[in-house]
Design a protein around this nucleic acid. Structure first.
Lengths: 141, 141
DNA sequence: TTAGTAAATGCAATTTCATTGCAAAAAAGT
DNA sequence: ACTTTTTTGCAATGAAATTGCATTTACTAA
């Protein structure tokens, strides 16, 4: 499990209850959570603006990584341990469920792709769309 | 080259000068063009709202496909011929240039990815970030 | 060619979402 | 407990997208 206090300490961020709450909320689910969902869940406790600022600093510090969905909405997931400030290593496949709209970070690496002449790629992302584990099993039963 | 009048006819869309202009503008470049760029170029001729509506109907009809960049901005490119209404076949790699911010549709297919148990994927997209052909060559000279 | 009707456009108003400035509150160190 | 620095919340601003409606434009059939 994640330890919010420890994460904040190792990234030289002050320990505030708002920052802890955001990490707790995101850690509840293995799927990424969207900014609007977070806002709905934490809106009573945390000001909208503060939430924006916390998410931005977490992204800068490499604590969270941001995944844009097909609607241009930001989704956030906890970075793997190898992420460092200004250098994310989220080179795994993302899975967007078209039923529950959750985004999962799969334990599958993005395959190597050879670029056409003249194009040099530094990062490659890969996103799959379909039905997730939970939605598939609830459809069967 | 693309023929706007023909595209409109084959998709049962009325021929208007605004619709033709949008297609012409998008066909000028092989790269995808962002909504704000389109707005800047066509803002004098076409109302902002009309542009939104045209882009939406083109996407619905499978004439354009929409690519979200990392900022959540919509970019549009002309669909390959195999796109039909409500079923896009843009399963090629997209390239986002981090210098000029243009998005290219590469002639490279998205590789097959095996999903974890329980996850069933219907579509997979792949996006590379880096320096495009033009920006690379202008950096050398 | 012209009249009728169905659809697309442009404008104004509204709504939604993100950002900025600043005063008050809260952390961390002494 | 006191001081300094950072974070938070609120209000105001700014930017982007959406809706309603009157006007204009495209298409069809006489």
């Amino acid at each position: 499990m994640i330890d919010p206090a420890n994460i904040l300490r190792t990234h030289d961020l002050k320990h505030t209850k708002q920052r802890v709450r955001v990490l707790e909320e995101i850690a509840l689910d293995t799927a990424a959570i969207s900014q609007p969902e977070l806002e709905k869940k934490l809106g009573k406790e945390i000001d909208r603006v503060t939430l924006y600022r916390i998410l931005n600093t977490y992204e800068d510090k490499g604590i969270l990584h941001r995944i844009m969905d097909m609607n241009g909405t930001a989704n956030y997931a906890i970075c793997s341990a190898s992420c460092t400030e200004h250098h994310h290593h989220d080179e795994h496949v993302h899975f967007n469920c078209t039923t529950c709209f959750k985004i999962y970070c799969l334990e599958v690496n993005v395959p190597r792709i050879k670029m056409p002449n003249g194009f040099t790629a530094t990062t490659v992302t890969s996103t799959a769309y379909g039905i997730c584990e939970k939605c598939n099993s609830s459809a069967i039963h």
